[in-house]
Simulated scan of single mutants.
Amino acid sequence: MDDTTNQADAAGEQRCGFVAIVGRPNVGKSTLMNRILGQKISITSRRPQTTRHQVMGVKTEGDTQTVFVDTPGMHIMGKDRNRAINQFMNQTATQALRGVDCVVFIIDRTRWTEEDQIVLDRLAPLEVPVILAVNKVDWLKDKSTLLPWLEQVAGKRAFTAILPISAKNGTGVDALEAEVGRHLSVGPHYFPSDQVTDKSERFIAAELVREKVMRQLGDELPYQMTVEIEEFRDEGRVVHISALMLVEREGQKKILIGEGGERIKQIGSEARIDMERTFGAKVMLKLWVKVKRGWSDDARALKSLGYDFEE
């Protein structure tokens, strides 16, 4: 692999590859991809299962293009195992492993949970390199526990590399990118050099609204909330966006609107600031809430909202 890489670099050939970022919920997958890309593509919050879709982030540097695939956290579904939205997220995470050049498997410091084991088991059939990224090492109170843990976790699989990182502050991320680069294939780039994601601006707008809801409401609002963009009109200097927030019960709608409409105003204000930064234009954002009972447990409704189940 090193000889091929060196020969490709010497010849100035293009190199490209897909890299799946996997792990249980809330280990920092989206934070890592945003850090690598230098901008927000995947939304983040402290709440598990923030990421629902497979999101590609494209980084092109010279002759090398790396396509990172951020995935929903693979999780134990428990009492929600029959809920369509949960099935969709687990299915999406598994599908992201198809046809990749390597995998970055993220775990949280020196913790190993049942859900980490689920991820490891799903990686077992893969023959591509798997890099273990031990995230949030800056949070470790006792740094002396790290090395023994790295030696212990090395026995769980023949990992290509095991690297301690902090996706939030960037520690070790350069080393991780260098390791990923070793496993990219010689071949043409899949995306234009200035493209940073496969997702549309409408998708990103919807996700930014959903991020603000999750960050503000935390456990007040169940997972049964999604955002649908009904209008996205780009007039150059001004972008007009109308976003519909769907919930399943009237009580959830009241929570989302807040007393005197204060909650929805705050969500809109914070989302608009991020949108203007992302789209490079003034944003006129309109938000409203609608009750759509059972949408999160209805595969047909999910598909109409952009949650596409694939065979």
Score class of each variant (00 low, 15 high):
residue 102 C to G: 12
residue 137 V to M: 07
residue 301 A to R: 11
residue 219 D to L: 07
residue 145 T to R: 13
residue 4 T to S: 13
residue 136 K to G: 00
residue 185 S to D: 15
residue 159 F to P: 04
residue 279 F to I: 08
residue 218 G to V: 07
residue 142 D to H: 11
residue 75 H to L: 07
residue 307 Y to N: 08
residue 176 L to V: 09
residue 307 Y to G: 06
residue 156 K to D: 00
residue 192 P to W: 03
residue 52 R to K: 10
residue 186 V to E: 12
residue 60 T to R: 08
residue 62 G to R: 07
residue 11 A to P: 02
residue 18 F to R: 06
residue 170 G to E: 02
residue 94 T to M: 11
residue 268 G to I: 15
residue 45 S to E: 12
residue 20 A to V: 03
residue 245 M to R: 02
residue 142 D to S: 04
residue 273 I to Y: 12
residue 302 L to G: 10
residue 144 S to Y: 08
residue 165 I to N: 09
residue 198 D to P: 05
residue 287 L to M: 07
residue 208 L to T: 03
residue 134 V to F: 02
residue 281 A to W: 05
residue 231 E to T: 08
residue 256 L to N: 04
residue 198 D to V: 06
residue 201 E to K: 09
residue 247 V to I: 03
residue 136 K to D: 10
residue 81 R to L: 10
residue 287 L to H: 01
residue 198 D to N: 10
residue 308 D to E: 10
residue 170 G to K: 09
residue 262 E to I: 09
residue 46 R to A: 14
residue 260 G to D: 02
residue 302 L to W: 11
residue 196 V to P: 00
residue 297 D to P: 01
residue 232 F to C: 08
residue 277 R to D: 13
residue 124 A to W: 05
residue 133 A to N: 09
residue 276 E to R: 09
residue 125 P to E: 05
residue 190 Y to H: 10
residue 111 R to H: 14
residue 260 G to L: 11
residue 163 L to Q: 01
residue 97 L to P: 03
residue 115 E to P: 08
residue 230 E to Y: 05
residue 64 T to Q: 11
residue 81 R to H: 13
residue 149 W to R: 05
residue 309 F to M: 08
residue 53 H to F: 14
residue 188 P to Q: 06
residue 113 T to V: 15
residue 266 Q to R: 13
residue 76 I to R: 15
residue 35 R to T: 01
residue 60 T to D: 04
residue 140 L to C: 11
residue 62 G to Q: 05
residue 8 A to T: 14
residue 9 D to W: 09
residue 43 I to G: 01
residue 233 R to C: 00
residue 252 Q to T: 00
residue 1 M to R: 08
residue 304 S to D: 14
residue 165 I to H: 07
residue 157 R to K: 15
residue 167 A to E: 03
residue 193 S to I: 14
residue 95 Q to R: 13
residue 99 G to R: 14
residue 112 W to T: 11
residue 234 D to R: 12
residue 191 F to H: 06
residue 99 G to D: 15
residue 237 R to M: 08
residue 175 A to F: 03
residue 144 S to E: 15
residue 159 F to V: 02
residue 228 E to N: 05
residue 8 A to V: 03
residue 254 K to S: 02
residue 137 V to D: 09
residue 226 T to N: 00
residue 277 R to E: 15
residue 297 D to Y: 00
residue 126 L to M: 11
residue 136 K to I: 03
residue 246 L to P: 01
residue 282 K to S: 12
residue 6 N to R: 15
residue 92 T to I: 05
residue 68 F to C: 00
residue 213 V to H: 04
residue 77 M to N: 14
residue 112 W to A: 06
residue 46 R to P: 14
residue 239 V to C: 12
residue 95 Q to H: 13
residue 42 S to E: 05
residue 110 T to L: 02
residue 305 L to Q: 04
residue 293 R to E: 05
residue 111 R to I: 06
residue 87 Q to W: 05
residue 294 G to W: 00
residue 210 R to A: 01
residue 131 I to Y: 10
residue 267 I to N: 02
residue 152 Q to I: 00
residue 40 K to F: 02
residue 221 L to T: 06
residue 246 L to D: 00
residue 154 A to N: 13
residue 308 D to W: 08
residue 113 T to F: 14
residue 257 I to C: 09
residue 61 E to R: 13
